[in-house]
């Protein structure tokens, strides 16, 4: 058993690369996911993950499986959808969730069309589900770079982001940081989704961001501790997902997300800050 926990990483370089890349994703994705949840934007992350597909597909069409082209394309597509949906929401009577849904669906359909017309089903699977076991040096550098930038960026906008979330009118009265903070946060979301799709694919990239964050919310009522717990859950999920994948032969990306999902279900049941166990038995109540 102990051998199974360590030997895959000791023996195989591709497993070590997958571990490092996954850890980088989980470390940066956790705080981003925490703020997505606190800002009631959980499904925004999911929509944005779909929205980057046509950009990545166009990058693939132009340069094949080129890291730079697919990353730049995905990043551009994600930002375009975020900015366009925000602009249409401000200019019309539609709410932002409706405009985001409209733009991401168009973007997803365009991406699938491009990949289907010009690529093969294997290419499509790569874009949709990624390949965490195939991370090369440039991809690892990209993941580490985005992870570092994300942590630095979040540290820079942490205070206005908290205030913009909890009391936006007050922030608007004391500072003009609200708008730039929203944009900077969206850029960080897109950056992490682009990083995530290299390893996990567009469909699962958001999982390593949201599931640990949702689980952490059920354990503590403090933002900084939520971030720490979410990062820990994310990194443990990456590790256990890879171990189970190695032992079972099942695909790594989905298994990482399934392990994170397992943590989420445990948190729903036993979380001390809102889990079911704190609310049961329903016919009893606390002293104060």
């Amino acid at each position: 058993m102990i051998d199974l926990l360590f030997s895959p990483f000791a023996e195989f370089e591709f497993m070590r690369r997958a571990l490092v890349g996954g850890m980088a994703l989980a470390l940066a994705g956790a705080p981003v996911g925490v703020f997505l949840i606190l800002r009631r934007m959980s499904l925004t992350g999911d929509a944005m993950a779909h929205a980057i597909l046509p950009g990545a597909a166009l990058g693939y069409l132009v340069s094949g499986l080129s890291l730079g082209a697919m990353t730049a394309g995905g990043f551009a597509a994600g930002l375009l959808v975020a900015i366009a949906s925000g602009a249409v929401a401000r200019a019309t009577s539609l709410r932002e969730d409706a405009t985001l849904a409209a733009f991401y669906l168009m973007s997803l359909a365009l991406g699938v069309t491009i990949v289907s017309l010009k690529g093969t089903s294997i290419d499509l699977l790569h874009v949709l589900f990624g390949n965490v076991l195939g991370l090369d040096n440039p991809t690892l550098m990209l993941l580490a770079g985005i992870s570092s930038l994300t942590l630095l960026g979040l540290a820079a906008i942490y205070r206005p982001l908290v205030l913009e979330t909890v009391d936006p009118n007050y922030l608007a009265s004391v500072s003009r940081a609200g708008g730039p903070t929203q944009i900077a946060f969206l850029v960080l979301v897109v950056m992490n989704l682009v990083a995530g799709f290299q390893a996990l694919g567009t469909l699962l990239a958001v999982g390593v961001m949201m599931l640990p964050a949702a689980a952490a919310r059920l354990w503590v009522a403090d933002v900084t501790r939520m971030i720490a717990i979410a990062a820990a859950i994310g990194m443990v999920s990456v590790y256990l997902g890879l171990v189970v994948s190695f032992a079972s032969g099942a695909p790594s990306g989905p298994l990482i997300i399934l392990v994170a999902g397992g943590f989420y279900i445990l948190s729903v049941c036993f979380g001390r800050a809102g889990g079911l166990s704190r609310r049961l038995p329903a016919n009893r109540h606390l002293e104060a």
């Binding site: 906008i157 206005p160 979330t165 909890v166 500072s175 919310r217």
Partner: peptide, 24 residues
């Protein structure tokens, strides 16, 4: 207009009054 579900305590919320002095 304040999101009361946000996990922040009374001290931190009141400390936001120093925004202009403390900044980022």
């Amino acid at each position: 207009e304040i999101d009361r579900s946000f996990p922040i305590d009374v001290f931190d919320m009141v400390s936001m009054g120093y925004w202009r002095q403390a900044g980022l």
